[in-house]
């Protein structure tokens, strides 16, 4: 396994285990490496659209579907709390973890709460909708806005 893949798996494994973003130091320890090498790998993983970093270049904002910061999309899986980057990623967390979950979010316009059970076959029947404002070709121009 190449180094960047080791770092990616360390980051994603930490999110899956804790629901929270790891620090570069934690990733270095998990991968048996050093912080400088981890940050170099972060930059390459950003180019592959696997990670999104904060302006400091070292804190993980997104490891899709996981969010490194609290959002309005909260997903409970196996008794753990996760934050998703968007509505798509809210369903992406149970999909990534291969476990049933419960999505807690809200209507983008009215604020009405959404509680959606998700099992191995997908979400319970629901008339709620997903709306994406940004065209697919532009998603990564500003992925945080998207």
């Amino acid at each position: 396994m190449d180094f960047d893949t080791q770092i990616k798996l360390a980051v994603y494994g930490h999110f899956a285990e804790t629901g929270r973003r790891p620090s570069p130091d934690e990733v270095a320890k998990l991968a048996g490496s050093d912080v400088g090498s981890v940050l170099d790998a972060y930059a390459r993983l950003r180019a592959q659209r696997v990670l999104v970093l904060e302006a400091d270049g070292s804190s993980i904002r997104m490891a899709p579907p996981f969010s490194g910061v609290p959002t309005q999309h909260v997903v409970m899986v196996g008794g753990k709390e996760y934050f998703a980057n968007c509505a798509w990623d809210a369903l992406g967390i149970p999909a990534a973890l291969h476990q049933p979950g419960e999505v807690h979010s809200r209507c983008g316009q009215s604020g009405e709460p959404l509680h959606l059970e998700v099992d191995f076959e997908g979400p319970e029947p629901s008339a709620w909708l997903f709306h994406c404002l940004v065209p697919a070709a532009k998603w990564w121009d500003d992925i945080v806005f998207t």
Binding site: W88, G92, L116, G122
Partner: peptide, 14 residues
């Protein structure tokens, strides 16, 4: 996009 369509996207991506 319906919730069923979104689930397919979530599975496919993640």
């Amino acid at each position: 996009v319906s919730m069923d369509q979104l689930w397919t996207l979530a599975i496919t991506w993640y």
